[in-house]
Simulated assay, not measured.
Amino acid sequence: MAPKISLSMPPSFNSMAAPTPASPSWRGPHSGVPLSVASSAPAPTEIVPNLFIADLGAAENPKLLIQLGITHVLSAMCGRVLLPANVPLAQLQLPLQDSPFAELAEYLPASTLFLSEALRDPKARVLVHCAQGISRSSSVVCAYLIAKYGWTPDQAVRFVKSKYAPADPNPGFVMQLGEYARSLNKTR
């Protein structure tokens, strides 16, 4: 059983305005970084500045990580993730199953804290991934957006899908994102 983690965020966490594609700080997907990865999987996509989402193949690809300047990796999956040893990375791995009945909510405070701490450094570039880059990783990114900008789960999911078409949190994860949002609202 995992230890209980406080759901409160640092006071400065919500101080930034929510990004929009029209805002001057917004840089479109990939920030213009040319990717030379031949794969049927979608390329890593920048959801908000310096926060990328992708699949396991991207996380294990040293050339791609270096091209994107990735400094932190959040692995939202069980099993072994073979991050390249020659690329210096800070990592957090959450043992998430890809099932509507899997426990997501207990990991959201830790994942949100990891992302917020990393992204305080303007030079940091963070990759969030799961096996296919569809449900678990997008749910973790949505939780970050909910905590950072005070969005509803629906707003966060729509925003992530608008940037990264494969994003599709499973219904159980969407429900848990709602629980997470309500818990954050109680502490605000």
Rank of each mutant, 00 (worst) to 15 (best):
A165Y: 09
S8V: 10
T187M: 13
W151P: 01
K186Y: 10
A43E: 08
G57C: 02
Y107W: 15
S40C: 01
G133Q: 02
L96S: 00
V87R: 11
R120S: 15
A18Q: 12
L127Q: 05
Q91M: 12
N185I: 09
L65I: 04
R158T: 11
L115M: 15
P88L: 13
A105Y: 07
Y180I: 09
Q155P: 01
P169N: 14
V48K: 04
G28C: 09
E60D: 09
P100E: 09
A76G: 06
V81R: 06
E103H: 12
T152K: 12
L145S: 03
L89P: 00
R80P: 02
P153K: 02
T45N: 04
Q155V: 09
A54F: 01
L108D: 01
W26V: 05
P42S: 14
I70V: 15
I47S: 02
M175I: 10
P84G: 10
P34M: 07
G150Y: 04
G32F: 07
L68S: 03
A124L: 08
K63E: 13
L83P: 01
L68V: 10
P24N: 07
L96W: 00
S23M: 08
F114W: 05
S12M: 06
D154E: 15
A167T: 03
T20W: 09
G150A: 06
R120T: 15
L68D: 00
L56S: 06
P95I: 05
S138W: 03
S36V: 10
L64H: 00
K4G: 08
S31V: 05
A59T: 04
L113G: 08
K186W: 05
P88T: 12
Y144M: 09
A90G: 06
P10K: 13
R158Y: 04
K123Y: 09
K148Y: 06
P3I: 08
V37A: 05
K163D: 02
N50T: 13
R182K: 14
Q97L: 14
K4V: 15
V126F: 02
T20C: 11
S39L: 10
G69F: 11
S75V: 04
A181Y: 02
W26N: 13
S99N: 14
D154T: 14
S111L: 05
P19T: 12
F114Y: 14
S25E: 14
S139D: 03
R80M: 11
L82C: 13
D98M: 07
L64W: 00
T45P: 00
V33T: 11
G69L: 10
I5Y: 10
Y107T: 08
S15T: 13
A41C: 08
Y107S: 11
P21D: 03
G172S: 06
P19L: 11
L83K: 01
R125I: 11
L127N: 02
E117C: 08
G178T: 12
V160Q: 02
P19A: 08
L89F: 05
A58R: 00
Y149S: 08
S138A: 15
K163G: 05
V140M: 13
A41Q: 00
R182P: 03
P29R: 05
K63V: 13
A156S: 12
V33E: 03
L68H: 05
R136D: 03
V81K: 04
A85H: 11
R182I: 06
A59D: 02
P62G: 12
P49R: 14
T71E: 07
A43V: 08
S135F: 06
P122D: 07
